[in-house]
């Protein structure tokens, strides 16, 4: 494949937000060959889901 740009793409992705969504994106990318920076505004990841008691319809633990 010929590319117009001389510079090659950078094989790293920034994911902003360390909730369940950010973590899933980060894992998918990191497991398929990309380096991921996961930027979270608070002191630890987990987001809203870590606050839930259980999830329906299976009533599984949210952790």
């Amino acid at each position: 494949m010929s590319r117009k740009k001389e510079q090659k793409n950078i094989g790293a992705v920034m994911v902003a937000g360390g909730g369940i969504v950010g973590m899933q994106s980060a894992l998918d990318l990191a497991d398929s060959g990309f380096y991921v920076y996961l930027v979270e505004k608070s002191s630890s990841i987990g987001g809203a889901m870590a606050r839930l008691d259980k999830t329906f319809p299976t009533n599984d633990c949210a952790m």
Binding site: A16, G17, A48
Partner: peptide, 12 residues
């Protein structure tokens, strides 16, 4: 940081 793409997932 130098990156190729960005994903935004800052919740609600």
């Amino acid at each position: 940081i130098n990156i190729g793409a960005v994903i935004l997932s800052s919740g609600f």
